[in-house]
Design a protein around this nucleic acid. Structure first.
Length: 215
DNA sequence: TACCAGGAGAAAA
DNA sequence: TTTTCTCATGGT
């Protein structure tokens, strides 16, 4: 598995070049985006972020000062807007109550993860996206794209629990968060680019590695 | 028109 | 414990 994962990484990196995620202008914007992108296309998240940015500074304090109703209206383009307004407020409250970046940066990764998962509306994927991209810690974001890709490469069955998939990948990567960052970003790029529109992956940069591909 | 998108949590089985 | 349902806009 390790060799295959590393080969896939190298191949995608060669094909697409460095992705340099997360696509955000400020650190807290990563956190907001991680919540808003839950089961939503990034294009729609960008609309909501633009609406939000036009009204208030993208900080936990400013978001908590807005009324829940107004916040929900700004988030409307990203879908599930009432739900996401609640979740975003919960995350902002978590940040403020724990001393913001300064306070949270002092926690070890496992502690940070455990506490993030206690926030209502933050599941494993959202927590790991925040930990990897906003806190720059080496954790793998085992999202739908990676599950789809690894399943296609026959590295996993496909229905493993989130934690199992995450642990499997983390065993094969080192401890440099930049690798986790690039790898996950490349997987998403590849997934958007090819795998969704061409389900059998017969014509992508990973073709040679795909057991289902002919020839 | 139907389906999907960088999920999570509650309810039902 | 596992499966199903709900939340919702916007693109293809």
């Amino acid at each position: 598995m390790m060799a295959t994962l590393q080969r896939a990484y190298r191949t995608m990196h060669r094909h697409y070049g460095p992705q340099r995620w997360w696509p955000a202008q400020a650190r807290f914007e990563i956190v907001i985006g991680a919540v808003l992108t839950q089961s939503t296309a990034w294009r729609n998240v960008e609309r909501a972020l633009a609406a939000l940015r036009a009204e208030i500074p993208l900080t936990a304090e400013a978001i908590l000062e807005a009324t829940p109703h107004r916040l929900a209206e700004w988030l409307r383009p990203s879908g599930y807007y009432n739900l996401k307004a609640q979740r975003l407020r919960a995350v902002c409250t978590f940040f403020v109550r724990n001393g913001g970046w300064h306070g949270l940066d002092r926690w070890q990764t496992e502690e940070l993860r455990r506490r993030l998962l206690e926030v209502r509306g933050v599941g494993p994927e959202t927590a790991d996206a925040i930990i990897l991209y906003a806190f720059e810690r080496p954790v793998f974001v085992a999202d739908a794209y990676s599950r789809r890709l690894f399943s296609r490469l026959r590295l996993i069955e496909g229905d493993e629990p989130y934690e199992q998939l995450r642990a499997q990948v983390e065993e094969t990567l080192g401890d440099d968060h930049r690798d986790y960052n690039e790898y996950h970003a490349l997987i998403v790029r590849h997934g958007k680019d090819v795998c969704r529109s061409r389900p059998r992956c017969f014509d992508c940069c990973l073709r040679d590695m795909c057991p289902a591909a002919p020839g």
